[in-house]
Design a protein around this nucleic acid. Structure first.
Lengths: 132, 132
DNA sequence: TCAATTGCGTTATGCTATAACGTGTGCGAT
DNA sequence: ATCGCACACGTTATAGCATAACGCAATTGA
């Protein structure tokens, strides 16, 4: 699946996320786009839904925020599980993929006959710079 | 760290969660406890905070809900990482611990000099009974 | 041309979580 | 004993996150 051309709103939201240095909440995105005519949360959420579907944006469940995918080119859906390390000081996010963890989790799920659909792996703590 | 005696409110909330067959949101807990004098969300959240601190309850970030720990006796904080498989049909949750996944993630974090504090691993999908 | 699909805008609403205030109770130190 | 402290509790208000439901406009394809 290749990413379709983005609509105007989707582009605006995606650009804001791409330029941000940390995850943004939907309402923060809304505020940043008021000058571009955004007035209501739905405008943001609808764009986010599509961007998530295309795999170019990730949702961080543990902090109710969104980040642009770290692999702009390839489609992130093909990477298997994605994990995130989120710094609680500076907000920076490190995205990573590990097939070992993948397999281990998948094997376990298989043994339970559990059909996985979506996964969330998020570690909160402090990054190298902030741990000081 | 052993779990202190629970207060009245903590006990009420913990009992509701223990009897539930699926995770409950704070507001659902509130509704279930109105007959016991609960009137406001804070009464629930304050009890939950303590129960989370004691490690006898887990928060499921991806569905904004709470479950009683599957290991009532031992303290769950000592298990290292905890992961959850959450059925989107019946709501049932399977809790599991895997040292392999643990180590793998921890090694990765170490290589990034990231100091982990809290972790969230949640897989949504369908359990054996519901996948049919 | 017509119907179906998709994106968009708006208003209203619902769900999740916490701030800020004050009260009461138990308990150790002086 | 009583003072001070820590802690649980109750209440009101508010902040923050997300979606329902309506209608309009543009696009596309039969």
């Amino acid at each position: 699946m290749t990413t379709p051309i983005l609509t105007k709103n989707q582009t605006l939201v995606f650009d804001v996320l791409t330029k941000a240095e940390a995850p943004l909440s939907a309402y923060t995105i809304l505020d940043k786009l008021r000058d571009h005519g955004f007035r209501a949360p739905l405008q943001v959420y609808r764009a986010l839904d599509k961007l998530l579907e295309y795999g170019v944006v990730h949702r961080l469940e543990s902090i109710n925020s969104f980040v642009a995918c770290a692999h702009p080119d390839e489609n992130c859906h093909s990477h298997g599980l994605v994990a995130f390390a989120i710094c609680e000081s500076c907000g920076q996010v490190i995205e990573f993929h590990d097939h070992e963890v993948d397999h281990r989790l998948m094997d376990w799920l298989k043994s339970q006959k559990f059909k996985a659909e979506k996964s969330t792996i998020e570690i909160r703590g402090h990054c190298a710079s902030c741990a000081a």
